[in-house]
Amino acid sequence: MLQFLIRRLSGAVVIMFLIGAFTFFLFYSIPQDFAELACGKNCSPENIAVIRENLGLDKPITTQFWEFMTGIVTGRDFPQGHCSAPCLGVSFDSDQFVWDSIKDRFPLTLSLTVGGLVIFLLFGLGTGLLAAWKRGTVVDKLVSGSSMVLSSFQIYFLGPIVLSILVYNTGWLDFPKYVDFTENPAKWFMGMLIPWAVMATIFTAQYTRMARSTMIEQLQEEHVRTARAKGMRQAYVFFRYAWRGSLIPIVTIIGMDLSALLSGAVVTEFTFDLAGIGRLAVDGSLSKDLPLTMGVMLFGAFFILILNIIVDLAYAYIDPRVRLA
């Protein structure tokens, strides 16, 4: 177990390093002088030289890369002051420490993710199980049909519709706005309600379909039939035997969705004008802000890798065949 964790974590560090290297050198293949870009129009060559020195762009690329990567572990000193570990550099654009920007934006992304997750797991798995239990009945057809329709919607389509009904026409809710939870939990909740609901609707539909189909698949397994042949109650067979087998694909998808959401829900953020990690990533790459892009990339990669390890641990918990001797 410990050995497994050590092996996986050190693997994750290597992958992070490779992602960093890839992003970094890819960025430098853009035929553009970042200093010129940061300086703006009508810039004198002297100014460009100053900026180049300030941003550290005058050093060789490998040195820049090395300084960036070591900065994550040890921290770095910039003209703006000391950037403590994990230092992801200074944004070309805003002159802010990238880590500080991420820290600023992350609570929103976390709120959006966790709130949405709770809603779509509750409803998605709930309705999926219901449809599988009532397979072939009107309930099943209703649930399957509506989840089919909803899952073909998009956030940027459903979002404006919901906004126009609940905000612009009836005025029942205010336009979504992020308020920190620690500041005012009620406002936090009300402000996030529409984004949660819209995002979760689309995810719910996907989870409904997946839960239903994996459960139906599991219910046809021979060992599930054996459990029924032993005289176990139908609900017991359903929730003990079939559900246990369905957990593996479900946990896999949850892990993937969760890591995607934590590294920024771009469409949701843009639809509801929220400034989270997703927006930061888009801003960074559009303005060719290398440190910002690197920072957001590595931040997202971190979640993907950590959640992968957690999902693997969950597999071992669910399925004894995966358990390490």
């Binding site: 021979e222 060992h223 042949a229 246990r244």
Partner: peptide
């Protein structure tokens, strides 16, 4: 009932 394939007829979990 005793089923045919004891590998698939017992739950792995």
């Amino acid at each position: 009932m005793i089923f045919q394939d004891p590998l698939t007829a017992l739950s792995p979990y």
